[in-house]
Write a protein that binds this DNA or RNA. Structure first.
Lengths: 345, 345
DNA sequence: CTGTTAGCGCGTTCAA
DNA sequence: TTGAACGCGCTAACAG
């Protein structure tokens, strides 16, 4: 038998369907006695409104589309969790599309055409489903201008941005500056940095933070303390070796991600150096594994949950026609563990 | 201005809306010339069907609800990825609900009432949204009978089960048996095991696999090689210490998860034992971090992607009225890394 | 065989 | 408080 609809309620309560609707939504006053009858019927028939029908009429689905370039990449789950956090409290539902880019194209993000069709499809599915807005979660931060066309629907980017839309980003420069400040507070001054790929925006910004700290704290500036890595473990390993082989090696190494940090740890270990006694290390990302390394890695944690939360909150305001500007972006915070030691003065 | 609808197309192509619908769905023959006109109009107006309206009429949304107890828990993303994999190829959309249990109630799963309301809400939201079926992804395997009532909608459980519904599980017993076989092939016979909490079904099943292997391979049976851990790193550490302090210590330790495996690694290191030269270790789960440990941990990988894939595939068949039985469950497979050595004969 | 008319699905909302 | 139009697309029934 069919699901019970508003009609069944009306029939049983001996009122019109309009009245049922008013009771349901409190849109209008209804005589208490009538209301009671209606509610009794709703109860008895275990009625549950059909949101699809409601959406059709209201022209609003209370559903937002979330496009993630790859759910299995480490940043996605926590961002989604932040989205859900807000969504739960505002009756917003999440239609999730997973582009699965990591499986489909690996890291070839330069080749936009390779994944444009996936992104375009995702958008058109979502638009067809009449979502009220879209959140796009990239795998890594880059310019996504022109990738998709959302035909005027509100959209928010995170871990990526376009020249036309709002995007939620943490402040890379501030983050690496803060990591440096911490190291300085711990008594370090010869601090090396291993960067990510230099075609990446976060890499460049984090390097800026490094320079700024070097200047502000009047640290000895030595270009040979700056290594250009590629985000992978091997490059951390390779450059840590170079760094540790110097005549005047650094006392601390800031690695732009935890993965390279693993390489650094390994290089130190192989040289018989112990961390943090002989060399301090700070990573970036607070990947789950950084807590399982030995020593446990001190690292800059990313505000993933907050980014998701802010993304949907902002989208929500956009949907409701608010004029959104001057957003305060969430900040990274240092997760202090065991890979940095305090240097004696 | 309003989104262009089927009506606009009809108007422009000078046909009735019925004809447009026929062209759109290929439901009936349409004269080529007419079809061309319609298609031209669709193109010109950039028409995109309103799936909401379609769903209302069809009484089918092509959307399935995915309830995850917590997206940020390690098993969720890959299961979801598997769900997407199938969904992509069958025009199925995913409405994701995240119960966020890890944040809300931690590990207190005994206290069902603490999260029943979340689960119930999730189901009723999903039902209201008229999903065609539901997949429930637990945080860990347990009996979920009676938790929710889906009012006859098809539902599939994974990482959990009920007495009434279909659930997708890998075979724990086979998995630990296989891990043991591997160790035996590598020349080990004194093999210890550190289990998870014994109120957990996987723990018990994996222990069965262990016993079975001990019997089948005629390994020396020594009860002191069996330790009851609690899934946490500390218990791995503690029991590894006990094991390694024995007069006749094992040559290999099978840990029922990678987290405890980290504790085992640490215990060995502190004793000046090197892995795998002095002691071999096999973990369970293939957590991301197991590849970043040193040595890289050999571990039983879970077929998460496959579970998600099979879950939605089965759900799809259920939705289409097929009679589903005798499912072949996906299997764990060993990820061979560097923590086991071949013992000389 | 091709095209049209009209009612339906379910809830919202305006006019009466 | 109610009847009826409406949102958008599907489809049965009918006409040519």
């Amino acid at each position: 038998m069919r699901k019970t609809s508003i009609k069944d309620i009306a029939l049983r309560a001996n009122v019109s369907i309009a009245t049922v609707s008013y009771v349901l939504n409190g849109t209008r006053n209804v005589r208490p006695e009538t209301r009671r009858r209606v509610q009794e019927a709703i109860e008895a028939l275990n009625y549950q409104p059909n949101e699809i029908a409601k959406s059709l009429k209201r022209n609003r689905t209370n559903t937002i589309g979330v496009i993630t370039e790859d759910v299995t990449v480490f940043n996605a789950p926590d961002i989604i969790d932040g989205i859900n956090d807000f969504g739960d409290h505002h009756d917003l539902h999440i239609l999730l599309v997973n582009l699965r880019l990591d499986k489909r194209i690996g890291r070839n993000f330069q080749d936009v055409e390779a994944y444009r069709k996936y992104a375009t499809n995702a958008v058109s599915e979502l638009l067809g489903k009449q979502v009220d807005g879209i959140i796009y979660i990239g795998v890594h931060t880059r310019d996504l201008t022109g990738l998709i066309n959302v035909e005027g629907k509100p959209i928010i980017y995170t871990y990526g941005y376009t020249q036309d839309d709002i995007s939620i980003q943490y402040n890379d420069e501030q983050a690496s500056y803060e990591a440096m400040s911490y190291l300085v507070r711990m008594g370090h001054s010869r601090i090396a940095i291993i960067s990510g790929l230099m075609d990446s925006i976060p890499s460049r910004r984090r390097l800026n933070g490094y320079y700024k700290a070097v200047t502000d704290f009047e640290l000895p500036f030595d270009p040979s303390l700056i290594k250009m890595g590629d985000w992978e473990r091997d490059s951390g390993y390779r450059y840590a070796n170079e760094l540790l082989d110097m005549d005047n090696p650094p006392t601390a190494i800031l690695s732009m991600n935890d993965v390279m940090g693993v390489g650094v740890l390994q290089a130190a270990k192989e040289k018989g150096l112990s961390v943090p006694e002989d060399i301090s290390i700070v990573g970036f990302d607070d990947r789950e594994f950084s807590d399982y390394l030995s020593p446990r890695l001190t690292t800059m944690g990313l505000p993933l949950h907050e980014m998701g939360y802010l993304a949907i909150e902002t989208l929500y305001r956009l949907i409701n026609g608010e004029d959104v500007q001057n957003l305060t972006m969430p900040e990274c915070r240092l997760i202090e563990r065991d890979s940095v030691r305090m240097l004696e003065a």
